[in-house]
């Protein structure tokens, strides 16, 4: 009796556990089946493609801080990047830095005046071997076959490991709901939710419809975008004929953004 009562309780306990676990298992099964749904899809006809997208920034064409504004504004406006007063919560995809901050390991004692005083445009370098991609525990940040490092905002858990991993400070975190801080919302592009990391996407959504990145379009030729692995491309021509530098090359990340100084 004693024994069968104990057995009964054991079986009852296990069944209760099983019953309460079924919804959880169902949820998993559902999610995995959702991932499995095959659809028929293709890139758009106008999409422009490359083996590895890259950018060359001709800093000689900028004379003042004012010259950089149109590019920053173009990017932040079409991507619904919020403007947060609190510096700690700031979100930026492309912004200006002094030379000594953009290239902290190239801090020379004496440099020419233009370099000393001119702000530099900085953005995500879309590294060849990106530390952020290595760090992300969910593949929410990943490298596309054309070299672009993208964010899947749906999948990001907001652990900010990628921010610690990025040696260029290119990533921002939504410390709060960004919507109230977007003045002029671009209704064609999604905003982000609080709790996810975001950064420059090399305008993947514009490349898909055959347009150049927004900053490049606004740069009046100072920014050139193209395929780094195509020897005939405009970026390669510029790299062949000009001396360029990249940010923190010694770290081996392989930045895809070059600067002509």
């Amino acid at each position: 009796m004693e024994n069968s009562r104990r057995n009964f309780l054991k079986i009852a306990g296990i069944s209760a556990l099983g019953l309460s676990a079924t919804p959880v298992l169902d949820a998993f099964a559902l999610d995995i089946s959702m991932l499995d749904m095959k659809i028929n899809a293709t890139p758009g006809k106008d999409a422009i493609t490359a083996k590895r997208w890259g950018m060359v920034i001709d800093t000689r064409k900028f004379e003042s801080e004012e010259d950089l504004k149109p590019m920053i504004e173009a990017c932040h406006k079409i991507h619904n990047v919020p403007v947060l007063e609190n510096k700690r919560h700031e979100i930026k995809w492309i912004w200006e830095e002094e030379f000594k901050h953009a290239f902290p390991n190239l801090e020379h004692e004496y440099v020419n005046e233009s370099v000393e005083h001119l702000p530099f445009l900085v953005l995500c370098n879309h590294c060849k071997d990106a530390p952020c991609v290595r760090a992300c525990p969910t593949k929410a940040t990943f490298k596309r076959e054309d070299g672009i490092i993208l964010m899947d905002f749906h999948r990001c858990i907001g652990c900010r490991f990628c921010m610690a991993a990025c040696p260029y400070g290119s990533r921002s975190f939504n410390f709060r709901d960004p919507r109230p801080f977007i003045k002029d919302i671009n209704k064609k592009f999604p905003t982000r939710a609080r709790g996810v990391v975001e950064k420059c996407n090399f305008c993947a959504e514009r490349l898909a419809v055959g347009q150049q990145p927004a900053c490049v379009e606004a740069s009046k030729g100072a920014l050139v975008f193209g395929d780094l692995e195509n020897p005939e491309s405009e970026v390669r021509r510029l790299l062949k004929t000009n001396y360029t530098i990249r940010r923190k090359v010694a770290l081996g990340t392989g930045p895809s953004v070059y600067y002509i100084v």
């Binding site: 969910t138 593949k139 990001c156 858990i157 609080r194 709790g195």
Partner: peptide, 16 residues
């Protein structure tokens, strides 16, 4: 510390 704690199981769902 997670910004999206309800998605924490993504770590298991998409093992990396």
């Amino acid at each position: 510390d997670l910004g999206q704690p309800m998605r924490a199981l993504n770590v298991i769902l998409y093992p990396t």
